[in-house]
Amino acid sequence: MLELAAALVPRLRAGERVAVITVTAVARSAPRGTGSSMAVTAGGDVIGSISGGCVEEDAVMLGLRALSTGSGLAASFGFTAEAAHAAGLACGGAIEVVAYPLSGEDTVAMAALEAALRDEPTALGLVVRDGAAAPLGTLLSVSAEEGVLTLSHAPRARLVILGAGDHAAALCRVAAAAGFAVTVCDGWGLLVTPERFPDADRLVVQAPDQYLRTSADEFDARTAICVLTHDERVDIPALAVALRLPVAFVGAMGARSTVGRRAGMLREAGLDDDELARLHSPLGLDLGGESPEETAVAILAEIIAGRRSGSGLPLRALSTPIHGDPNASCAAPRVGERA
């Protein structure tokens, strides 16, 4: 539910009636996991998805029934292989859901939604007992009590882009769409503008290495740093700092000849082999693209593969499950994910 905060909060503040449908269990494979939610308004607006389109129509009807009755309802979609396909679950899996009405008068839920809207860490307990969600007004704060499903929101993972050229603009757009909070930094203020980077959360006009030094305490193990400056006078000092920060990913664009020369310069700057081994360069997966947008997709794909321990191989070349554990605790969303 909390991933719908941007759409729900304005409606609930305005007094609009809304029903939320939340996945409480998943069997086998499903596009979205436990805790995923969608919503439907009394006027018929549909917000979000719980199955990638497979059972949305049935889920909407369940939500409208919850609105009309004013109480929580439960349903199962496809808990046998035959039923799964009959219910439209092309993935072959099955889900259990609860639907429950929600209003702006529910102060606990509103507080959690508003915190999520501010991108602050928050969690909410949803009472799920006796085959139904609790009625309006009984959403609880986090609890270990049996029958309470914990929903949570973690602040978005950060992507720091150093350099403000066309590749940086494309990467900013793609990463923001994927749920990253993007910071763009360049020493040339003419390029670091809201017009060029409308999706950025933060624009910084400063030498990249200076920015990394002065902001080091803002970065964490969920942060990715991409150096796209194309200028060794800028990227060598920036990489010398970045590779010593406790971040998840450091990458730099460059031809293979540039990568080799850059490694030598970084050694001269005092970096050792272990530090240099952290550098992803040339940056991006081999997708064969050429445009800034295609390059941006390749870069983001490598970042996501690293965070999710993905192989980067085509799914058809693998026999492992397509989706991770669908019933993993939604109290600790993975990087870039909102539960």
Score class of each variant (00 low, 15 high):
2 L>I: 14
3 E>W: 01
5 A>C: 14
11 R>W: 05
17 R>V: 11
20 V>I: 15
20 V>E: 06
31 P>R: 05
38 M>N: 09
38 M>Y: 06
39 A>K: 02
41 T>G: 08
46 V>Y: 02
47 I>C: 01
51 S>M: 08
57 E>D: 15
58 D>T: 12
59 A>W: 03
70 G>A: 04
71 S>L: 02
76 S>N: 10
83 A>M: 13
86 A>L: 14
86 A>V: 15
87 A>W: 12
91 C>A: 13
93 G>C: 13
97 V>H: 03
109 A>Q: 05
111 A>L: 12
113 L>W: 06
116 A>S: 15
122 T>A: 08
123 A>P: 04
125 G>W: 04
127 V>C: 05
129 R>C: 04
138 T>W: 02
139 L>A: 10
139 L>G: 04
140 L>S: 13
141 S>A: 12
145 E>C: 09
147 G>A: 09
160 V>L: 08
169 A>H: 02
169 A>R: 05
171 L>F: 03
175 A>C: 12
177 A>C: 14
178 A>Q: 02
186 D>Y: 01
195 E>S: 08
199 D>N: 00
201 D>N: 09
202 R>S: 03
203 L>N: 06
204 V>R: 00
207 A>S: 01
210 Q>K: 10
211 Y>R: 06
212 L>E: 04
213 R>N: 09
219 F>N: 04
222 R>T: 12
226 C>L: 06
226 C>Q: 03
227 V>T: 06
235 D>Y: 03
236 I>Q: 02
237 P>L: 07
244 R>E: 15
245 L>G: 06
246 P>V: 11
254 G>K: 01
257 S>E: 14
264 G>I: 07
267 R>Q: 15
270 G>E: 09
278 R>S: 09
282 P>V: 06
286 D>N: 12
293 E>I: 11
299 I>D: 05
299 I>P: 00
299 I>A: 07
300 L>V: 12
300 L>C: 09
301 A>D: 08
302 E>F: 01
306 G>N: 10
311 S>Y: 05
317 A>G: 08
318 L>F: 01
321 P>T: 10
322 I>N: 00
322 I>H: 03
325 D>M: 10
331 A>R: 14
331 A>G: 14
332 A>C: 12
335 V>K: 00
335 V>G: 02
336 G>S: 09
338 R>K: 15
339 A>F: 11
